[in-house]
């Protein structure tokens, strides 16, 4: 834990205040990298990538959670894990290929646009599906949706069957069932899935690289670009900022929802 988690994080922070040299860096204490980050378009990009990740999280919730509920409630017990396996299958393909494959699907003359054109639903093809922030959000949802389904399904699977029988005895309708039973009992899973998607949304450089246009840069991509430019302190600073932002969010979540209580096992 210390070697693989705490130490790299500490090094990240320490290196971020080092001074940049031609090819590496030298020990110093300078906030130049942070200035470089906060007083440039990088900050704006960072914030917008947080915003886009949030949208991905919300979309994944509205798509993934109902799927998980459906599997828990409507699929036979013996088949449930097999169905879950279906969502693992895409991971057998390299992520680069998976995301790259979205380009022909979403592009101006791609599958989605031609389908919509053929159905006469639109007159001219949408061009916002790729090389735009929208494309990045779509890519993130496609990539990370299984994690939302897994984590919420696991939480739902832990709900004992008697709960549903009690509900049918009391006459609980679907809306109330969702609000009073599924949402609170799957909250730990929802939280885990959301954090995962959010973190990867701002951190993984691959998706904006392949699907994003010039305007869509996330924190991971800023760091990658800094490394390419041999500005290691800047890359470290970006990583450190990302880290502190997440810790801040977790703390906020803890204060608002009392996460430890949320993550307690259901007895």
């Amino acid at each position: 834990m210390v070697i693989f988690f705490v130490l790299p994080l500490l090094l990240t922070v320490v290196w971020s205040v080092f001074e940049r040299t031609m090819f590496w860096m030298e020990p110093a204490f300078t906030l130049f990298s942070y200035e470089n980050f906060f007083f440039s378009s990088r900050l704006e990009n960072f914030l917008s990538s947080m915003f886009h990740s949030s949208i991905s999280v919300v979309c994944a919730f509205f798509i993934g959670f109902p799927i998980a509920i459906f599997i828990r409630r409507r699929v036979k017990k013996v088949a449930q894990h097999r169905v879950m396996l279906l969502f693992i299958l895409p991971f057998m393909v390299s992520e680069i290929i998976r995301i790259f494959a979205l380009r022909p699907i979403l592009s101006r003359n791609g599958v989605v646009n031609s389908f919509l054109m053929d159905m006469n639903l639109i007159d001219s093809p949408f061009s916002i599906f790729v090389f735009t922030p929208t494309g990045v959000v779509i890519g993130e949802i496609v990539s990370f949706l299984p994690f939302m389904i897994f984590s919420t399904f696991l939480a739902l699977e832990a709900i004992p069957n008697y709960i549903f029988e009690v509900c049918s005895d009391l006459g609980v309708n679907r809306r109330r069932m969702f609000k009073d039973i599924f949402l609170p009992l799957a909250a730990p899973g929802l939280f885990a899935g959301s954090v995962f998607i959010f973190v990867n949304g701002i951190g993984i450089a691959l998706i904006p690289t392949i699907l994003g246009g010039p305007g869509s840069v996330n924190a991971g991509l800023i760091a990658t670009q800094a490394i390419i430019a041999l500005d290691f302190p800047l890359a470290m600073a970006v990583s450190a900022i990302m880290m502190f932002t997440l810790m801040g969010l977790l703390y906020l979540g803890h204060r608002l929802f009392n996460l430890t209580k949320l993550l307690e096992p259901i007895s």
Partner: peptide, 20 residues
């Protein structure tokens, strides 16, 4: 009639309470 429309209530086996 479904369970909730019958004039019956059920006490289930085990401790069938809403945990939250």
């Amino acid at each position: 009639l479904p369970p909730d429309k019958r004039p019956t209530s059920m006490v289930f086996q085990g401790f069938a309470l809403f945990p939250h």
